[in-house]
Write a protein that binds this DNA or RNA. Structure first.
Length: 409
DNA sequence: CTTCCACAGGAAGGTCTGGCGG
DNA sequence: CCGCCAGACCTTCCTGTGGAAG
């Protein structure tokens, strides 16, 4: 059987799939011309060997913050090479690199060329790492622009404090910082000194509206897909759906790409609205499935406890929402069944908040007056969560064999 | 108006792991 | 090998609180 032969003969709808991926940065960013110019003006002094102002950039996800910064950054490096002013442009995502130590370590390692001088990711005292970083930068004698994406994910403001006053410790090199955040309230909690230093320049990226999203999609679709494969209403629909979710361009591009992939798999000649809706559903379920699978054991037990309580409520025709106390009781029972020591209620409270932030459950704080203050807990997609948990081997003792399938007890 | 429930969630500290230099 | 370090993950102890009931 020529499995791949058959698949390969199937006509692809794509010219270049990459163009629709979130990591792709096009050379032209529609509706961000003003932001690009503004940022370029701020960076300009770097080309004269001077230190650009620090910048703080706000904006929700998918508003083009990262794309604009990376685009302007790469143009800056290019121009720097031409004019013989070498510039270090360091991009760090603080969601991945989220502590003082790792931040310094990461910056230093991006500046180091040789493998063996690299700084280990644990073991050294933090100030030692800082000293080494200083040495490295002073040796290079360059202007370095350090981009801290998702800066609000950074734990503690010590790291920002260190970086923002680093210029005082450097004799030959210069540092300027670009902070990117989608949390508008982020600076409120910062040390005032850091706040004023980081906020020398401020930029706000507003969400795209449906029309702007359409322009973006059209531009990308032209490069990514073969001509004529999109039904007329597909792009407006993707744009409208994404606009509903606070104008997230990343979401819009994902929708279009996945819709096209689904259509291709069906061997369809054209991408239609139906594919887009299917894509949206798929994105939601994939997200939940991915997160639930990788959850630590106690969070899984907790989810199972919520699932089971909800089912019980449903069969009794009662109100679906649960409280922390109820969930905790069921959770403790389940732990007993598995002969596992349950976590404290305090800890479980934190786990519940985490699940809420991940979008697996909704947990709103409500007051029931005389009957206390608690969280109102609900699963966001019980069918999908149940499907994942039923196939989880670590929860086996809590599941029951019935016919061919594992069922919840 | 006050009371008081059932927690929320802050602070501080303990334990364990992986990985470093010496 | 040891001693040290940062960070993940928990516990203990604690103070704070929205709003129905009294």
């Amino acid at each position: 059987m020529d499995i791949f032969g058959t698949l390969m003969r199937r006509e692809s709808l794509f010219l270049n799939r990459e163009v629709l991926r979130p990591s792709y940065i096009p050379d032209v960013l529609p509706h961000r011309e003003r932001e690009i110019t503004h940022l370029a003006e701020i960076f300009l002094p770097a080309l004269k060997g001077e230190q650009p102002s620090n910048v703080f950039i706000y904006g929700k996800t998918g508003t083009g913050k990262t794309a604009v910064v990376k685009l302007v950054g790469s143009k800056l490096i290019e121009k720097g090479r031409e004019t013989n002013h070498l510039i270090d442009f360091i991009y760090i995502n603080c969601e991945v690199v989220d502590t003082h130590y790792r931040l310094l370590q990461n910056i230093a390692n991006q500046l180091i060329n040789s493998w063996k001088d690299r700084i280990p990711f644990t073991g050294l005292p933090t100030d030692e790492v800082y000293l080494r970083l200083r040495e490295i930068m002073d040796e290079k004698k360059r202007v370095a622009i350090i981009v801290l994406d998702e800066i609000d994910k950074l734990k503690g403001d010590e790291a920002l404090y260190t970086l923002s006053r680093m210029n005082g410790d450097l004799s030959n090199a210069k540092v300027s910082l670009v902070g990117i955040s989608n949390d508008l309230k982020f600076t409120e909690f910062l040390d005032p000194r850091v706040k004023s230093s980081l906020g020398e320049e401020n930029m706000v990226f507003y969400p795209y509206n449906a029309q702007e999203l359409q322009d973006i999609l059209e531009q990308r679709a032209k490069a990514a897909l073969k001509p004529g494969v999109l039904s007329d209403s597909v792009i407006p629909l993707c744009a409208a759906l994404a606009a509903r979710e606070h104008g997230d361009a990343r979401r819009a591009l994902d929708l279009l790409r996945i819709a096209a992939e689904l259509a291709e798999r069906e061997n369809a000649k054209k991408v239609t609205d139906r594919h887009v809706r299917k894509a949206m559903h798929k994105i939601e379920l994939d997200h939940i499935a991915e997160v639930v699978k990788t959850l630590p054991l106690h969070s899984k037990i907790l989810l199972l406890a919520i699932l089971r309580e909800e089912k019980k409520r449903k069969s009794m025709g009662m109100n679906l929402s649960l409280t922390t106390g109820e969930v905790y009781d069921t959770y403790c029972n389940m732990c007993k069944k598995m002969s596992i020591e349950p976590l404290t209620q305090r800890r479980v409270g934190d786990l519940i908040s985490e699940l809420d932030m991940l979008g697996i459950i909704t947990a709103r704080v409500i007051s029931k007056g005389r009957y206390g203050r608690t969280r109102e807990i609900r699963l966001s997609s019980s069918a999908e969560i149940q499907r994942i948990l039923q196939n989880d081997s670590s929860l086996r003792p809590l599941l029951l064999y019935r016919g061919e399938q594992m069922k919840l007890i």
